[in-house]
Nucleic acid binder design. Structure first.
Lengths: 229, 229
DNA sequence: TTGCTTTTCAAACATTTGTATGAAACTATC
DNA sequence: GATAGTTTCATACAAATGTTTGAAAAGCAA
């Protein structure tokens, strides 16, 4: 058997098992059993368990990033070098949401793996995520071009909130479904993307009116602290 | 030594260690060493490691929930039985954000523990979180009273997005700080709460204009799928 | 004190886990 | 077809970890 066959069998089995049962419940022995390879093969081909997980996550992350930048590029070309802020935000959150939500996506191992990675956050994945910042700078730059009037602070908050809504929707989709008693349609991916984009763009326009958000009613009573429960 | 002393020594030591080093890196032996008690004491007083973690998390969750409902009650009383939608959202996200962000909060063990719990999401905590839904229904009810025109779907999405922004800001504050090169002031807790509240309320007003979000440019080109990278 | 319950303690248990080893099987090149 | 390099395999290793045990200690009521 060529070496690559064992390697990819391990990758596929690991991704499937991690997606189904999470990182905490899957051991190397589970993976090699699923892949029908020897236990030592993991360390031979990947060096360690953590490096296996890292490779899985990096592969999928690169895919998502490529999709995002691709969608951004398409939007910029269509706009003659300048994409609208809506399209930029859509390029940011669209790929992730499309990948992880939707009815048929239940079968997508890659998507379910990335959801797990988002929820459980094991050390090797956390390490990678912390270096993931520079890829977002490209989106910050595009946003800056699209709304030159806005200042950087507002821009970063808008970017942050967009990712907040997208990721949290993926992470907590079960809970939202339960809370809303099915009223929130988690299968309407296009609608969800519209929602997130709309709200994100609105968030960005806060900064265009004033540098400080407008609404700030007096609510902080002196006696309302963490102590008095 | 009275039995309660050992019990609370374990609780305190566990919360401190988990807050500092995370759930993955702290063993029972670390905890009992920090608490100066015997290893078997944990199982004697709590039954198991998971039940210890669960007790820690439940205690802090109850605290947060009480703060939220308290703040909601204050706002409703001030408004003569009806709180404004701004104040409701503020009561929802305020306690968590105040508890977990801010400069002096660095020393608060409870806050850092809850951040860890939000990031790492170990099984006993996940189990509890999944039952945490009914507490949010009280907020949904208050929101319904505040904006009777809005339909339930929009309401739940607004609630969900508010929590998204609050939790994600806590979870990813380091990354946001790095991405924005310090431009986003994570110590200005009041400002952050204002931001989240403002955006949440705006998100809720989407539904008052129309039942579907307005912005929906044609971006989904046929060739833009998960494959073509 | 006596007797009973609760709590502490040191030690051991039982598993699980990732990793390492060294020989065997396989592959490809000469 | 011999040889060198690669890959597979069964097995063992070593360490960590949550849990259990049974006796000692402490607390407390009669």
């Amino acid at each position: 058997m060529p070496s690559d066959q064992t390697r990819s069998a391990i990758l596929a089995a690991a991704e499937r098992l991690y997606a189904d049962r999470g990182f905490g419940d899957v051991t190397l022995r589970d993976i090699v059993a699923e892949a029908n390879v020897n236990l030592a093969a993991v360390n031979y081909h990947f060096g360690s368990k953590d490096e296996l997980i890292a490779e899985l996550f990096v592969t999928r992350s690169i895919q998502t990033n490529r999709e995002r930048l691709n969608e951004l590029k398409v939007a910029e070309e269509r706009g003659g070098g300048r994409a609208s802020i809506e399209d930029i935000m859509r390029a940011l959150v669209g790929p992730t949401l499309r990948g992880c939500l939707g009815p048929d996506r239940e079968g997508s191992t890659a998507a379910r793996f990335m959801i797990r990675a988002s929820i459980e956050s094991v050390p090797p994945i956390r390490r990678i995520k912390n270096r993931e910042v520079d890829h977002l700078r490209k989106f910050a730059a595009a946003m800056r071009r699209a709304m030159p009037a806005s200042n950087d602070t507002e821009l970063y908050w808008g970017l942050h909130f967009a990712l907040s809504m997208a990721h949290h929707t993926i992470r907590e989709k079960e809970r939202l479904l339960k809370l809303s008693e099915g009223k929130c349609d988690l299968d309407d991916v296009a609608g969800i993307i519209d929602r997130v984009v709309t709200v994100s763009v609105m968030a960005l326009t806060i900064g265009e009116v004033a540098s400080k958000p407008p609404v700030r009613p007096a609510v902080m009573h002196g006696r309302l602290t963490r102590q008095d429960l």
